[in-house]
Amino acid sequence: MADLKEAIEKIKEIPGNVRGDIIISNLLYIRSKKGDIGLNKVKEKVKELNFSQSLDKIRALEWYPESLSVSIILSAKEVFNWTEKDVFEMGNSSTKTSFIMKALMRYFISIDKVFEEASRYWDKYFDFGKLNILEKDKKNKRIVISVEGHNFHPDICIYQAGFMLKIAQLSIGQKEVEIKETKCFFKGDNCHEYLITWQ
């Protein structure tokens, strides 16, 4: 707990806001997995991390500190003793309940279209950082995406990978889509880089 509190305190210092929609999606996911009791535990944990914002009053389109969103993910991981895989699953599932994502999904008519618009989607969720399509190779069925300026916590890289994978799955139309973080800020790279491949 001491480590988490310490880490969060550092994270709080990083500027950047996120739409409440992401926070709501994460809370819904936690409730779907652990029920209201589990959710309350997470809420308690977040409170202990000195966030004054009530998690019951989050509004989907309002902006909130990204540190709050990150602290929810990390608290859940600690409370439920989740692995990285669980964090990945959380990111993957958040797209399913996200109001913004639902509104955007009408444009998920092809992989080209999705990734053409990818940077715009980023802006709808975050008021910091940047998402770029570095490579789009439909022939070899691979896409390389980079994320710059989103350096809060290594677990969030995993969460982001899960999130992006779901978008890829929905636009490619098959389950056999894989994502791999090929570069990471926390590993000394200047940005995060994800390779998406499919069958």
């Binding site: 092809s110 636009s171 139309g173």
Partner: peptide, 10 residues
């Protein structure tokens, strides 16, 4: 709601 790939979106 279903997308053009027949995947359920909502």
């Amino acid at each position: 709601t279903v997308n053009p790939l027949n995947l359920i979106l909502g």
